[in-house]
């Protein structure tokens, strides 16, 4: 049984710019299935991105799409949402876009708990500019700007989101296709700031110089390293070394920003 993606894709805008072996195409398909699954109308979706490989995604899908400046997708998305709260607003970008140049906007959106869905495509590298290290490049890893090995510590994106106040935080991977779709759906349906970190692979920029000889080996790594949050609960710290958890890591009910604002200032009684 094949799923028909065409009704959400923009005719004539493919092929995409992503390299062979890049996992962003998988995420694009998960995104389409997730949106289709919850039944949002195309007119009611605003998809906002920053700059980078991931941020080119909005150009391919038939929604209201906004490709903004580097790191600023959340700022633009905040304005869109405040001007028209009926829109379902999604902000997406890579690890560099969202947590380096856009880090301030990321944490403040979480703090406000504004009803945005934020997808961070984490491939541990700046792909588009040619493999420079990002805030999520692992210690010791090679990048064109860490030719002797990455010396900086990394951001843990989901912890950053939880600490900043996001009310829904999940992690998934490009390998876990059905899981990714599920996490996206749950994020869409959550009222408040929802953050999903999506572990991705950049074979061209990261993999090839960091002991992943083939794109497939990076997917194997995702499969082997990811532990479902439920299963992780019964595992010892030793067993979890070198692994990461996937699933809904954090979910709380708390007042959404625009609703709170509208009530506070008297726009809504």
């Amino acid at each position: 049984m094949s799923y028909d993606y065409a009704k959400y894709l923009r005719k004539g805008k493919l092929p995409h710019i992503w390299c062979a072996g890049c996992t962003y195409g998988i995420i694009l398909k998960s995104l389409i299935r997730a949106i289709d699954g919850i039944g949002w109308a195309k007119d009611d979706i605003a998809l906002v991105s920053g700059i980078g490989c991931a941020s080119r995604l909005p150009g391919y899908v038939d929604f209201n799409t906004l490709h903004t400046t580097h790191g600023r997708s959340i700022g633009f998305a905040t304005g869109v949402k405040l001007a028209n709260p009926k829109l379902n607003v999604i902000a997406l970008g890579g690890d560099g876009d969202m947590t380096a140049i856009g880090g301030n906007h990321f944490i403040h959106a979480c703090r406000r708990n504004i009803d945005l869905t934020i997808f961070v495509f984490n491939n541990n590298i700046y792909g588009m500019t040619g493999a420079q290290y990002s805030p999520t490049t692992p210690k010791g890893a090679w990048a064109t700007t860490s030719p002797y090995g990455m010396a900086e510590n990394t951001f843990e994106i989901t912890s950053l989101a939880i600490g900043s106040g996001a009310s829904f935080v999940a992690r998934t991977t490009a390998y876990h296709v059905a899981h990714c779709e599920k996490m996206m759906k749950e994020a869409f349906q959550h009222k408040g700031t929802s953050v999903v970190e999506i572990i991705n692979a950049c074979p061209t920029g990261f993999g090839r110089k960091n002991k992943f000889k083939t794109p497939a080996s990076m997917l194997t790594w995702m499969k082997d390293s990811a532990v479902n949050i439920e299963r992780a609960k019964n595992m010892s710290p030793e067993e979890l070394v070198g692994k990461y958890t996937i699933g809904v890591l954090h979910k709380v009910d708390k007042p959404e920003y625009i609703e709170t604002y509208d009530t506070t200032v008297g726009l809504k009684k």
Binding site: R72, I74, G75, G79, N84, H105
Partner: peptide, 26 residues
């Protein structure tokens, strides 16, 4: 209408452009 104090000047500019795109004079 709605007002927001953003986290920095850059975000403030981004937000007004976003709001304008969604139809509000900003």
């Amino acid at each position: 209408g709605r007002f927001i104090q953003m986290e920095d000047e850059i975000a403030a500019m981004a937000s007004v452009i976003g709001a304008s795109i969604a139809g509000a004079k900003s």
